[in-house]
């Protein structure tokens, strides 16, 4: 009976994620400016979340192993770490695809990309450590300690480091309802950084109630310079014109103007802002998180079972340390 329930649950995972894929491509609406590229968020964000969950599970089982000393806990810790690595790689690849469409490059060492790359290296080192130690007991103990230390870096690399850096193009603030990009305050003649673009406010022109800023935008590595002219309506307090960054889907917005000090607040305006405000998108997004979490649980138990079978076989043959 239990086995049959297990089979049904696994079949449901298969159908559920297939349904999420269909909804992602055919049901979820397109996002203004991003077109079909925005759909990848339905997969990208849940895989990143599941990777954090997997690393947390790995650390928990590592702690349990150090406490209780049961080999099964080590199997689960390793299985969770491997799944976490796989989901992180998936989040990285889907992020790279989005990056190519929106930023024009697959990889530009954005703080978010750099931190996830470091995270992948940290967990790759765990697997290298495990394969380097032949003594089973020592391997399990050392990797459990390493796994606990590795997990300490996860909240920092996923949540803190990318937010510490002002120069990220990762749409933290664009896609999460209620959050905001802080932007950059510039007075005439001053230089600042928005994303990975250097910007300089050249001048301000007022025509009636509309103020237009002349902003020189330099591409990364100063490969090229462009003049953008975002504008702002003083009467309504709203942006009028939001030109796109050359080669990107992101726009340059003039959010505030202070004519007395000749200073402005310039910001990145990402298309798709408030993406999850749409109910269909929100439900598909939640269904995706649920599906990927269930997939992780299946992968975790499957891999742990394989490891325990491998251990039992090796013990029977007398080859396991």
């Amino acid at each position: 009976m239990r086995q049959r329930m297990g089979h049904v649950a696994k079949l449901l995972i298969g159908l559920w994620l297939a349904g999420v894929a269909v909804a992602m491509f055919l049901v979820v609406p397109q996002y203004e400016g991003l077109g079909n590229a925005g759909r990848i968020m339905i997969m990208h964000v849940p895989t990143a979340w599941v990777s954090v969950l997997a690393f947390a599970v790995s650390a928990s089982f590592s702690g349990l192993y150090l406490w209780k000393g049961r080999v099964a806990y080590d199997d689960y810790a390793l299985a969770a770490a491997e799944s976490g690595f796989l989901f992180t790689a998936l989040a990285t690849v889907t992020g790279m695809i989005f990056s190519q469409v929106v930023w024009g490059v697959y990889w530009n060492w954005d703080p978010r990309q750099t931190s996830i790359f470091v995270l992948l290296l940290i967990y790759a080192a765990l697997f290298a450590l495990r394969s380097a130690l032949e003594d089973g007991q020592r391997r399990r103990q050392l990797s459990a300690v390493y796994s606990l230390f590795a997990f300490v870096t996860v909240p920092f690399l996923i949540f803190v480091a990318p937010r510490l850096a002002n120069s990220t193009l990762h749409p933290n603030c664009a896609f999460i309802a209620g959050s905001q990009c802080s932007g950059v305050n510039l007075s005439v003649g001053r230089i600042g950084l928005l994303g990975d673009r250097k910007i300089q406010l050249l001048s301000l022109e007022q025509q009636g109630e509309v103020v237009t800023a002349q902003v020189q935008v330099s591409e990364p590595g100063l490969r090229g310079e462009h003049l953008l002219t975002p504008s702002y309506d003083l009467a309504s307090g709203k942006m009028v014109s939001r030109p796109e960054f050359p080669g990107l889907k992101y726009q340059l917005g003039l959010e505030k103007v202070d004519l007395a000090t000749k200073s402005v607040l310039l910001n990145i305006e990402a298309p798709g802002t408030g993406l999850l405000d749409n109910r269909i998108t929100l439900f598909t997004f939640l269904a995706s998180i649920t599906g990927f979490t269930a997939l992780f649980v299946w992968m975790l138990t499957l891999r742990a079972t394989l490891l325990s079978v491998q251990w039992a076989l090796a013990q029977r043959e007398g080859t396991q340390a």
């Binding site: 086995q3 696994k10 298969g14 299946w298 992968m299 499957l302 079972t305 394989l306 079978v309």
Partner: peptide
């Protein structure tokens, strides 16, 4: 995954 799962069980 299904195949591996059946074999592991």
């Amino acid at each position: 995954l299904w195949r591996i799962d059946r074999m592991a069980q």
